[in-house]
Simulated scan of single mutants.
Amino acid sequence: MDEPEKPKTRQLDARSLRGLAHPLRLELRRALRLHGPATASMLAERLGESSGATSYHLRQLAAHGFVTDAPERGKGRERWWRVVDDGISFDEGLVPDADPATRGALDVLMHEAVANHAREMTTFVATRHDWLPAWSSQSTDLSDYTLRLTPTEAAELIAKMHALIDSYRGREEPDATAVRIHTHAFPISTD
């Protein structure tokens, strides 16, 4: 069996982080990742925004290399967009960055990710009966665990979880559907 192709992850630096960290830009990128290439008008309708706003923010995303034209889809003056990468990560040097604009952009990125995860989980819970019986409690999961780990052990666990998830990429079973996997690993105070 062929090994699954590694996802193409974009490493954010301070400049690209500031170019991405806007709620609508993050939502546009997310929509293109989930639904594939689209026009500004299509995205405006899907997201409840004006096509002027989506067009402007798509051009900003393109200027920072997050999206690009999908000319094979367009006809005439119609401009189609597609996302460039499979995911993003950020340089650890951005966490303690002294620049308030960089810190603020990282906060926006992280808060939007958490809010999106909550929306996706809430939507699933509200519609779970539509997925039965195939998608029962055996094939869905809303678990949480508390482990006592060192930072090194946490990094090792995260790497193993990502490797396991990557091993499922590229499968094309006839009855398969898109499944969102959220992982969260963070320290908590137990005082």
Rank of each mutant, 00 (worst) to 15 (best):
P4N: 10
P4Y: 09
P4M: 11
P7C: 08
K8V: 12
T9C: 05
L12S: 10
A14E: 12
A14H: 09
A14T: 10
R15E: 15
L17A: 11
R18N: 12
R18Q: 15
G19V: 12
L20E: 07
A21V: 08
H22I: 03
H22W: 09
P23S: 10
P23K: 07
L24Q: 08
R25F: 05
L26K: 03
L28T: 09
L28V: 10
R29W: 14
R29L: 15
R30A: 12
L32I: 01
L32H: 01
H35S: 07
H35F: 04
G36K: 00
P37S: 01
T39D: 05
A40V: 02
L43A: 02
L43K: 00
A44Y: 04
E45I: 03
E45G: 05
L47E: 06
E49P: 05
S50M: 03
S51V: 10
G52H: 08
H57M: 08
R59Q: 13
R59L: 13
L61V: 08
A62M: 11
A63R: 14
H64P: 06
H64L: 06
G65R: 12
D69Q: 11
D69G: 11
A70H: 09
A70N: 06
P71A: 10
K75P: 00
K75A: 04
R77E: 13
R82N: 02
V83A: 14
V84R: 15
V84H: 07
D85I: 00
D85E: 06
D85W: 15
G87E: 00
S89G: 15
F90W: 15
D91T: 07
E92S: 13
G93R: 13
V95Y: 03
P96V: 07
P96L: 07
A98W: 06
A98F: 06
D99N: 14
P100W: 06
A101S: 14
A101H: 14
R103W: 04
R103T: 14
G104W: 01
L106E: 03
L106P: 05
D107E: 09
H111G: 00
H111L: 04
E112V: 04
A115P: 01
H117C: 08
H117N: 10
A118C: 02
R119T: 12
M121S: 12
T122K: 14
